[in-house]
Design a binder for these strands. Structure first.
Length: 828
RNA sequence: GGGCAAGUGGUGGAAUGGCAUACACGCAGGACUUAAAAUCCUGUGACUGCAAGGUCAUGUGGGUUCGACUCCCACCUUGCCCACCA
C-alpha cells in the first residue's frame, strides 16, 4: 500500500465515488419490512459553488445517514435544488440569456462538488423546483388553496423593493431592508395574492408543543413570530364637537384593567376613518399632509425615529362607556395599522408609548393602578407605571387587584355589549405574488369583470414562456406575447392571464414530500410512499430558516392533512440547526473577502479530511471558526489509521486462541469497547461528533502503543481493534474506510453495509479503580483499590495511610461520604 | 426595551454535582537526516520550590452543598432573534 499522499487520496476518493455511482449504492425503494429513516438537509439554492456552510450542513447529515445505514435502517437521503429565484434572473439580465441556462449550469457544477464530498445521496431522486414536473404540483397546491379560499387577492400596502422591482412579504423585510437586495423598502398599494396562513395560526402555535426534538430556541422564535395575545375588543361611539354621534370605532387592548385611565384614542395613519372624519373640516388639509407623509416613510425611518412620536388631533371625540367621559381622537405614527384594529385606546399612565405621546402633546394623564404601598401622583410621573398593582379611581373596581379587575372589566364589557374578548396574532397573511419571471406562474386567468378563475387542473402546468425580454425592470413575464392570454378550450374565448409568479418559499414548503415519489407525473406524490417515509426523522439546516421556511412547511403539512393527502400534522420530527462557519470572527461572505473554497481544500487534503475536520472543530450547533492550521491534525489522524493498517494488520484470518488475556490485552479490549459505547452514545444523544472523534483518537493512541510481537492472540486482538476503528470511522471518512475495508479483506461490498459494532459490557469492567480522597473538599490522596468495596473496607484502607493520617491530625471525623468507585469525602 | 444562548490554557474545545483543562492545534526540546520536509518521542494553565510538594485559577460578586465550570440570585460582556404588537 502506498503512503496516504495527496495523489493516493485523489485515487481512492475518485475510485469510490465512481463505484457508488455505478452501483447506485444509496438508492432506496420503499420496503415495509425494514425500519425506515428519512434524513434530510435543507436543499440549496444553486448559486454555482458550494460554500463551507453547505459542507458543514451536508457533512453532518451524511454522517447521520451513514450511521443509520450501518445500524440497519433503510435510509432515505435525497438531494435537490431550490432552483427558482432572483439571482438567476439577475444573471440573465447581465448575460442576456435565459435564467434556465444559468440555473442548469449552476446545478451541474454543484452536483459535481457534492459528489466530490462523497455524500450518500440517492441521486435518482434528485429534483429541481424550476422543472415543469415539479412546479406543476406547486400550481396544483395553489389551486387547492384557491378553491378553499386560502389563496385570495387583496389590494394592500406592500413592501416595494426599488432595486429588485418587486414586492416582498413582511417576513422578507429585515430592518426595513429587502432580504436579498438590502435596498430600503418603499410602501406601495397593488392587488396581490395572499395565502391565508393566519387561519392556521392557532394550530401552528399549539403544535409547537408536540415538537419535543426541536431546539427550544427555534420554537421560541416561532411562538414570538405568531405572537398570540388575548384581550378585549372595545367599541366606542364617535361624536362631533357638538356631542352628536357620527360613527363608531373599534380598538384592541390586552389591558382591560386600564379602561378608566383612557384619556384619548389614537388611529394609525393608514386607518380609512382618519380621512373620512376630517373631510370638509378645517383640519382636513393638515391631516391629509400628515397621513401622506407618514405613509411615505419607509419602515426603516419609522424605526430609527423610534421613540419620537408624532400625531395630530382630528377634532372629533369619543365616549368612554365606563366613565361617560368625552375624550379626543388623534392620529399618530406610532400605531400599527396591520396589528389589532389599527386603533388604540391610550392610557398614558400605564403605557410608556402613550405616556411619551401625552407628555409631548400635553394630553391628560390619569392614574388608575397604584403600587401596593404607595399612591402615584400623575404630576410627578417620570414614566408610565406598567406593573401589577391595586386599582383606584375605577368605579366599582377600585381597591381590588388589577389582575382580578382585568377579568371583571372584560365580563362587564361583554355583558353591556361594549366589546368582546378576542385573540389577535402578529402573524400576517403570506404575500406570495412576485412580479418576476423566474418562479412558478400563478395558475389563474381573469374574466371580463376581472374576476379570477383557476386554470383547469388538467391543463397544468402553466409553463413559463421562452419569448421573454430580460431588461432589469418590471415584470419580464408581461413582455411575452405567447403568455399574455389564456384561451378557453370550449368557447375559444381569450382571457387575460395572471403574470405574477410565486414566492420561492412556496416551492420549498413541500419538497420533502415530493422526494418520496419524484417521478410520479400523475399526482403530487404517491400516498403510500409518503405514508411510508414521512415524517422526516431528522432535518438539518441553518438557524436562518428558523421562522420562514419551517413555519411555511408546517403550514403546508397541516393544509395537506386537511385535504386528506397526508396523515401527520408535523413534517419534521427532529430538527438540528447547525452553527455558522466563521473566518476571523465573521461570517464567510464574498463581500468581506474571507471565503474559503471547499474545492481547494478537497484538492489539497481530500474530502475525508475536510469532513473529519469540520466535525471535529466544534459541536454541530455551535459556531465554527475556520482555522486553516488545525486541519493538518485531521489529515495526520487519517494518515495514522492508514499506516496502522498497512504496518500492523494481518489479513490472514485467525481465531482467538483459548488462553487468558494479560493486562495489556484487557486494557486494549476495554478501550475498544468503551469507544464503541461512547461513540454510539455521542451519535444517539445529540450528535456530539467532536467528542466521538476524540474518542477514536484515544483508541488509536492505545492501539499504537500495543505490543504484538509474534503472539497470535495479540495479533487477533489487534486485528479486531483495527477493524473497530475502521467501522467507527466510516461515517466520518467513508472513502478511506471503504479502501481500507477492501484491503483488509472485508466480505461486504461496501463498509456502509457492515453492521455498527456493539459494546461488550463485561470487557469494559475494571479490576482496579482509583479512589480519590477529599478532606474538607481538598484532594489529599488517591488509592488504587478493587471496585465495589464496602464503606468499612474503604475506611480501613484509607485511614491506615500515613499521609491521610497526617492530614487528619487526630481530628474528629464528622462525615465519611462514599461515591461508589469514584471518590471518598471526609469532613472533620 | 423583551426573549434565548454563551463566557474554561496561547488557540479550537472537553468535563452538566465528584480528580478542571480530555482530544487536537500551536509552541519548545530531542531522535532520525549531509540538510530540510515528513515521521516519531518528551514537555507545555499560572505562581512558588533543588525536589517531593504547596498555593491560586472556569467573566464578576454572593448563595446552596461534604464537594460547584456545572444548581440558585444579582451584575458585567459578547452573540443571535424579536421589537412603537396597544
Amino acid at each position: 500500500m502506498p503512503a496516504y499522499s495527496t495523489n493516493e487520496i485523489r485515487r481512492i476518493e475518485e475510485k469510490w465515488q465512481r463505484i457508488w455511482d455505478e452501483r447506485a449504492a444509496f438508492k432506496v425503494e420503499r420496503d415495509p419490512k425494514k425500519k425506515k429513516y428519512y434524513c434530510l438537509e435543507m436543499f440549496p439554492y444553486p448559486s454555482g459553488k458550494i460554500h463551507m456552510g453547505h459542507v458543514r450542513n451536508y457533512t453532518i447529515a451524511d454522517v447521520i445517514a451513514r450511521f443509520k445505514m450501518m445500524q440497519g435502517y433503510h435510509v432515505l437521503h435525497p438531494m435537490g435544488y431550490d432552483a427558482f429565484g432572483l439571482p438567476a434572473e439577475n444573471a440573465a439580465i447581465k448575460n442576456k440569456t435565459n435564467p434556465r441556462d444559468w440555473t442548469n449550469s449552476c446545478m451541474e457544477e454543484m452536483t459535481r462538488e457534492l459528489k466530490r464530498m462523497g455524500f450518500s445521496y440517492d441521486w435518482d431522486r434528485e429534483l429541481a423546483t424550476c422543472r415543469e414536473d415539479y412546479y406543476h404540483w406547486n400550481q396544483w397546491i395553489f389551486l387547492k388553496m384557491f378553491e378553499k379560499g386560502l389563496a385570495y387577492r387583496k389590494k394592500a400596502v406592500v413592501n416595494w423593493d426599488p432595486v429588485d422591482q418587486t414586492v416582498l412579504a413582511n417576513e422578507q423585510v429585515t430592518d426595513g431592508k429587502g432580504w436579498r437586495s438590502g435596498a430600503l423598502i418603499e410602501k406601495r398599494e397593488i392587488e396581490q395574492w395572499f395565502i391565508k396562513i393566519t387561519d392556521y395560526a392557532e394550530a401552528l402555535l399549539r403544535d409547537l408543543d408536540k415538537l419535543d426534538h426541536w431546539p427550544e430556541r427555534v420554537k421560541a422564535m416561532q411562538r414570538n413570530w405568531i405572537g398570540k395575545s388575548e384581550g378585549l375588543e372595545l367599541t366606542f361611539d364617535v361624536v362631533d364637537a357638538s356631542g352628536k354621534k357620527i360613527d363608531e370605532i373599534q380598538t384592541f387592548t390586552t389591558r382591560p384593567d386600564t379602561v378608566y385611565g383612557i384619556t384619548y384614542l389614537v388611529l394609525a395613519a393608514e386607518h380609512p376613518k382618519v380621512k373620512e372624519w376630517t373631510r370638509g373640516t378645517p383640519v382636513e388639509q393638515k391631516i391629509n399632509a400628515f397621513v401622506d407623509e407618514t405613509r411615505r416613510m419607509s419602515t426603516i425611518e419609522r424605526m430609527t425615529e423610534g421613540k419620537d412620536k408624532n400625531g395630530m388631533a382630528l377634532g372629533k371625540f369619543f365616549i368612554n362607556p365606563f366613565t361617560g367621559d368625552r375624550c379626543p381622537l388623534w392620529v399618530a405614527d406610532y400605531v400599527l395599522y396591520e396589528y389589532g384594529t389599527g386603533a388604540v385606546m391610550a392610557v398614558p399612565a400605564h403605557d410608556q408609548r402613550d405616556f411619551l405621546f401625552a407628555k409631548k402633546y400635553d394630553l391628560p394623564i390619569k392614574v388608575v393602578i397604584h403600587p401596593q404601598d404607595e399612591n402615584i401622583d400623575e404630576k410627578n410621573m417620570k414614566a408610565a407605571f406598567v406593573e401589577d398593582g391595586i386599582m383606584g379611581e375605577s368605579g366599582d373596581f377600585s381597591r381590588i387587584k388589577n389582575v382580578e379587575a382585568k377579568v371583571k372589566i372584560a365580563d362587564l364589557a361583554e355583558k353591556k355589549k361594549w366589546g368582546k374578548r378576542t385573540v389577535t396574532y402578529k402573524l400576517r397573511d403570506w404575500l406570495v405574488s412576485r412580479q418576476r419571471y423566474w418562479g412558478a406562474p400563478i395558475p389563474i386567468y381573469y374574466d371580463e369583470q376581472g374576476k379570477p378563475h383557476g386554470i383547469p387542473e388538467e391543463q397544468l402546468p402553466v409553463v413559463l414562456p421562452r419569448d421573454v425580454q430580460f431588461t432589469g425592470s418590471g415584470n419580464p413575464l408581461q413582455s411575452s406575447r405567447e403568455f399574455a392570454h389564456y384561451t378557453d378550450r370550449k368557447s375559444g374565448k381569450k382571457f387575460r392571464r395572471e403574470t405574477d409568479t410565486m414566492d420561492t418559499f412556496f416551492d420549498s414548503s413541500w419538497y420533502y414530500l415530493r422526494f418520496c415519489s419524484p417521478k410520479d407525473f400523475k399526482q403530487i406524490f404517491a400516498k403510500s410512499d409518503v405514508d411510508h417515509w414521512l415524517p422526516v426523522d431528522q432535518y438539518i439546516g441553518g438557524i436562518e430558516h428558523a421562522i420562514l421556511h419551517l413555519l411555511y412547511s408546517r403550514f403546508f403539512t397541516k393544509f395537506l392533512k386537511d385535504l386528506g393527502l397526508v396523515t401527520f400534522s408535523e413534517p419534521f420530527t427532529r430538527l438540528l440547526t447547525q452553527g455558522m462557519v466563521l473566518k476571523d470572527g465573521e461570517v464567510m461572505s464574498k463581500s468581506k473577502g474571507n471565503v474559503v473554497d471547499p474545492d481547494a481544500v478537497i484538492s489539497k487534503y481530500g474530502a475525508d479530511t475536510l469532513r473529519l475536520f469540520i466535525l471535529f472543530a466544534a459541536p454541530p450547533e455551535d459556531e465554527l471558526e475556520w482555522n486553516a492550521g488545525a486541519i493538518d491534525g485531521s489529515w495526520r489522524f487519517l494518515s495514522r489509521v492508514w499506516n496502522l493498517v498497512e504496518k500492523s494488520y494481518q489479513k490472514k484470518p485467525s481465531d482467538l486462541p483459548a488462553e487468558p488475556l494479560d493486562d495489556d490485552d484487557r486494557d486494549l479490549e476495554r478501550e475498544r469497547n468503551v469507544s464503541i459505547q461512547k461513540i454510539t452514545d455521542d451519535f444517539t444523544q445529540g450528535f456530539k461528533f467532536n467528542t466521538a472523534i476524540s474518542q477514536l483518537m484515544i483508541l488509536m493512541n492505545k492501539i499504537e502503543k500495543y505490543q504484538v510481537g509474534s503472539v497470535p492472540r495479540k495479533q487477533f486482538l489487534l486485528n479486531r481493534a483495527v477493524q473497530t476503528v475502521v467501522k467507527l470511522l466510516a461515517p466520518f471518512a467513508p472513502h478511506i474506510c471503504e479502501e481500507l475495508w477492501e484491503n483488509m479483506g472485508g466480505r461486504e461490498k461496501s463498509i456502509s453495509q457492515v453492521s455498527w459494532p456493539l459494546a461488550d459490557e463485561a470487557a469494559m469492567e475494571r479490576n482496579v479503580i482509583q479512589m480519590v480522597v477529599q478532606i474538607n473538599g481538598k484532594i489529599r490522596g488517591k488509592f488504587d483499590v478493587s471496585p465495589n468495596l464496602s464503606e468499612a473496607q474503604l475506611k480501613e484502607i484509607i485511614l491506615r495511610d500515613e499521609k491521610i493520617k497526617g492530614c487528619l491530625a487526630d481530628q474528629e471525623i464528622k462525615k465519611f461520604i462514599v461515591i461508589p468507585n469514584r471518590l471518598v469525602s471526609i469532613v472533620v
